[in-house]
Amino acid sequence: MWKNHKPLLFMVGISLVLGGCQIAKEKKTSKMQELDLPDVRALQDEFTRGFIESTEEVEKGYYSFLSGTKRYRMLFPKEGVIHQGYGIRDDQFEGFLMSTLNDNGTDSQIKINYYTNESTENAPVVLEILEGRVDQKLEFEKITSESSEVYYAPIEFEPDVFGIAALVVSLNGEGSVQIVYDTQCKNDKNECQQIKEEEIEKMIHWARSFEFVDQEVQ
């Protein structure tokens, strides 16, 4: 992936989960100067910019995003923004909704929950929770790397709204991330079918970009 840098249901219950969470004002403040930034949503939005580690793309169309918990990194789309409702509790929990505009004219929303105390042992229970969140019975595929397991399954809310539900679990005890990623296509049926295939492939690639951070070696 990339090397570590050194230089709408989901949001309803977040306030119940967070309790005394620390909110955005306690996350790192970006030192980037707005006038010098590329004209993309991820860097022009002040709140979102606070998570972006560098103005240099780490992959075409993506920047490196460091979680407010400092527990994981992921690819962040250049036309993505984080919406109101972001919540964090120390390094134990993080939850937020992001949206992005895609080059093919579609738009996507991605709901993310990070929990530091989840592991591979309770993955089956978490996958059932994901099924409940999307209200669908899902058939998950699993991809294993050296440091994580990625479970994903296609979802469809309407003929023109499709995506994946996914779970990324650290194999080294740094927690897991629950994901619901969906895209809306407003083009004609045949074009949307082709777009759907391309988008699902892109979503899986993005889910595989998560890198958990070992707190002990920082």
Results as ranks from 00 to 15, higher is better:
M98K: 10
H83C: 11
H5F: 11
E34D: 13
I195T: 09
V125H: 07
C192G: 03
L127Q: 00
Q136C: 03
S119N: 14
E94Q: 14
A207F: 02
Y72C: 10
E191N: 01
R73L: 09
L16A: 14
K142S: 01
R49L: 06
A123C: 05
L35Y: 09
K111L: 09
T144Q: 15
D188V: 15
Y114Q: 00
S54T: 09
S15V: 15
S64A: 05
V217F: 00
Q44H: 00
T100A: 01
T55Y: 06
H83A: 04
Y151F: 10
N172K: 12
E174T: 13
N117R: 13
F210H: 03
E26P: 08
S99V: 03
F162W: 08
P159N: 13
G132H: 13
N117H: 09
D107K: 06
T55R: 03
L43Q: 14
L9Q: 12
Y72F: 07
D91F: 04
F76L: 09
Q184R: 15
P77Q: 10
I200F: 07
I195S: 10
F212S: 06
L97C: 08
K186C: 09
F162R: 11
S148R: 11
Y114K: 12
K142I: 05
K142Y: 02
D214N: 15
E198A: 01
Q84H: 04
E46S: 12
P124N: 10
T29L: 15
G163Y: 03
H5I: 06
Q136F: 09
I129F: 06
T69Y: 06
E149S: 00
V81M: 09
S145D: 11
I164C: 03
E199W: 09
T69D: 13
Q44N: 02
E128V: 02
R208Q: 03
D90T: 08
G20S: 02
A165W: 06
V161C: 10
W206N: 05
F65H: 05
E156G: 15
F47V: 07
A166L: 04
G61R: 09
L9K: 14
E216T: 15
M74I: 11
Y86H: 02
Q218C: 06
L75I: 00
Y114R: 07
E141C: 00
G80Q: 14
Y181R: 05
V17F: 13
E139Q: 00
V40I: 12
R89H: 00
L37D: 11
L171S: 15
S108I: 07
F157L: 15
P77N: 04
S119L: 14
Y151W: 06
M203C: 00
L8A: 04
G132R: 01
